[in-house]
Nucleic acid binder design. Sequence first.
DNA 1: CGCATATAGTTACCATGGTAACTATATTGT
DNA 2: ACAATATAGTTACCATGGTAACTATATGCG
Lengths: 145, 145
Amino acid sequence: MFFLKELPTQAMINRYSEDYFPERSEDVAKKLQGLREYSTLIRKLEDYFASHNLSQLRFLVMMVIDREPDRDHLFAHEITERLDVSKPVLSRAIKKLIAASLLSSKKDKQDARAVLLSLTPTSKELLRSILPGYFDILSAQSHSV
Amino acid sequence: MFFLKELPTQAMINRYSEDYFPERSEDVAKKLQGLREYSTLIRKLEDYFASHNLSQLRFLVMMVIDREPDRDHLFAHEITERLDVSKPVLSRAIKKLIAASLLSSKKDKQDARAVLLSLTPTSKELLRSILPGYFDILSAQSHSV
DNA sequence: CGCATATAGTTACCATGGTAACTATATTGT
DNA sequence: ACAATATAGTTACCATGGTAACTATATGCG
């Protein structure tokens, strides 16, 4: 999350950064603007998911299972490879999804430690129903990007 | 935070979104890429601030006081106007900054509810010392932006 | 004036992010 | 075979985000 509402003017950035690398202060201004825009976008997405009793993470967990070619399940550690999230946080997200019947789990026969995670009919339908709004938010015009 | 490491291919986005608005799927791809890049950037900034016993928010609180023209202090509610953060979160951030001697507070004489917040010599020096690294991270080249 | 409303800031509680350390199972190497 | 190491997932604990409701003070208005 990036909180700054009113971005510093170029003059202000120059004032702060000119001693160090004046040649890069335009980059700095662009990055700050990008940070602000994407933070706003992330807030919109989070609000949207919250209105469906989801979070971005729980949505993405379902997405990476859904988009997996050739298989209808993933193990938690495979999800960790696909999402930039720590194991404990993923573990809890999965627990919540299972509690909400949005994920089903099955012990793996080869590896007693591992758990197969698959989408349920409910979550497949939920995914289909929320995707339009998701893409809508993502494709909405922002000020500059 | 946006977690997805491997972004969906254009073909995948089309598969998901073509029923709804195929004409916008390029926007979607661009936005997802932007989200990922800015999430990575935010992580780098957070790590940098953490290495100085700060957070992005506490840094920005000091910055908005420092950058205020004509005055050397702000009230908490004025900081709320400048930063997109809830009052309780700001309240705690301020408490931590005061505890670390990075902010000094003084009761306002006109309004007994309000508290004047100013930078301390320590925080002015700290700001100066961390700004180069901050701009460095912001101006570092990313893959596409 | 004095009551209703607004504002400044805090408290209580919850959601979600992280790391370190743990249990249980699998694998590796001698 | 079995000890050492690696891996799957969880637990415990902390940081930081949010909203609702609270206290205290200020303001507006009949």
